[in-house]
Each structure stands twice: as structure tokens, then as C-alpha cells.
Amino acid sequence: MNPVAVGFDGLLALLILFLAVRALTAPGLQQPVILFIAFGLAMALAWARMRAPDVALAEAAIGTGLLGVLLIDSLGLFTRSKSETPPQPRRSRAASILAVGTTLLLAGGLGFAILAMPEAEGLAAAAAEKLGASGVDHPVTAVLLNFRSFDTWLEIGVLLIAMWGLFCAGGREGFAPRATEARPGTVLGGTVQSLLPLVLLVGIYLLWLGKVDSGGAFQAGVVLGAAGILLRLGGLGFPDWLRPWLVRTLLLFGFAFMLLVGLSALFAGAAFLEYPPTLAGPLILAVELAATLSIGFTLYCFFTYLFDLRIHPATASSES
């Protein structure tokens, strides 16, 4: 290891630590949000240095891009509301002790679980050996969509549950189709127009790339969702033709499709979500396509829903 690499990594580690501490302790809401976005970027650099480009890509797309947009948009909710100063969370001693206690307990439990694990060389060798039968060439995609596709299926379920929670909290009015607003501004409108095809292209590229290199359904879904968010920011409301049943179908599609694939494997006498090696490649691509569609649409709905609630607060009766 040469000293320059050590210096780079040390500087990056210090930056991350500083950003984390400062994001937690800075006053107000605005500064922590921007520090958090910077923190995500620094984390992506750290993952890149650890030779985990898949994680770096996910962090860039989800941790910085999408979460950044959601946080900045939520910031608008607070600066707009009645009070001049954003609401400061009340800090009570009991709550602090509870939070610290739970964290320590969890950390202790995790540490114990790791120490109590039997010695093993891990599954990397076993996974690499079976890579040829997985239907894809990139080991990360093979693990995510073949060897451990059950986990991936449940992750898509988590997104679905989050959307469900939003429906429950905000009511269905948030999804009333909105008329297209007047162009918010020439610069923004032009940016959206010229950027949209590029974003769509990159989304499809990432999906296709998952077979051979870092990429895949989640990253592609986020980028496609970003295309939708861009449209909403550019003034295009939730379209008319997206009837409620169609919205629900699109939200459910990825989860349901994987369930269907898994169940048909069960009927064929294999394990749940076990693909036959000859069909694995096309099946994985189909599952990824379905998942990308649903992930992208869910994220678009997240944003649009919250954005519309903020722009038209009259429909949000649960607020205040």
C-alpha cells in the first residue's frame, strides 16, 4: 500500500466522520440536509475505494440523488409552514437515554452475533463456482437475482409497504390527477426537456448492464423514477390516464411477477424462485424488467404524492 493511497483514504475517512457528526449536531434543518447529501457522496467515494462499485452506484442513485430530492422537497414543507423557525425536535432526557440504550443494546447484540458465528470461509467461493449456472456474468447480479432472489423479492415488498404507509397517512386525494401547471420557468422547462431522454437512456442502460457489470434493477429503477420526478418538477402533473387501478397494478407488478415466477418454480417441483439453468438468463432479465418498472414507478409516486400534498395542502386534511 503506497503512502498516497493511505493519505487519500485517511482524508476521506476524516471527511466522512466530520460530515456525519456535523449532520447530526448542526442547528436547524437546512444545514443537516445538505450535509447529509454531501455525506452520501463521500460514502459513495468510500465504497468506490473499497472496490465495491455496485454499492457506490446504489449509494449515488438512492442515498444521494433520490433521498436528496425527497429531503430538499420536505424542507420546502417546513420553510413554508406558519412558523418562521423550523420546528425543533423536543429533546427529553428520557428519550435520549432510551435511544442511546437501544442503540447500545443493538450494537452489543450484533457484536455478540458476529462473535458467536461459527468459523467459516464465507460463501464467496461457492457462489463463484456456480456463477456459470446462474444465467448472468456479473457475480453481484447472480447473487441478488438468482442465489438470493428471495431477499430481493422481499426488498421490493418493503418499497410496496412504504407506499402503502403513505397512502394510509395521506389519504387517496394526493393522487387525484392534476392539471399540468404552467411552465415554472424557461430554464427549468428547457432543462427537463433536454435531460429527460438522457435520464431514460441511462436507466435502460443500467438495467441492461446488470447482466455483465455493476448495474441492475434497483439502480435502473431509481434512475427511471428520477425521470418521472423530473417531469413532475417541470410542471407535468400526475397524468389523467393513470387511473387508480392502473396505479395499483404498476405498484404491485414487480412484486407479483416475482411471486408468480417463484410459485411456478414450486409447481415445477423446484424450490421457490429456483430458476432452471437453461432459462435462468431470460427469466432474470424478465424479473429485472418487472422489478425496475415497479421500483421506478413507486419512487415516482412517493415523490409526486408528497410534492402534490405540499403544493395543494388543502387536500391534506390530516395535516395540522
Binding site: L75, R80, I229, F307
Partner: peptide, 10 residues
């Protein structure tokens, strides 16, 4: 770009 666009809208 998205972050800036979201910011201009807030």
C-alpha cells in the same frame, strides 16, 4: 440536476 430542480421548486 434533480436536487437543484427540486430546490428551485421549493
Amino acid at each position: 440536476v434533480l436536487i437543484v430542480a427540486a430546490f428551485t421548486r421549493t
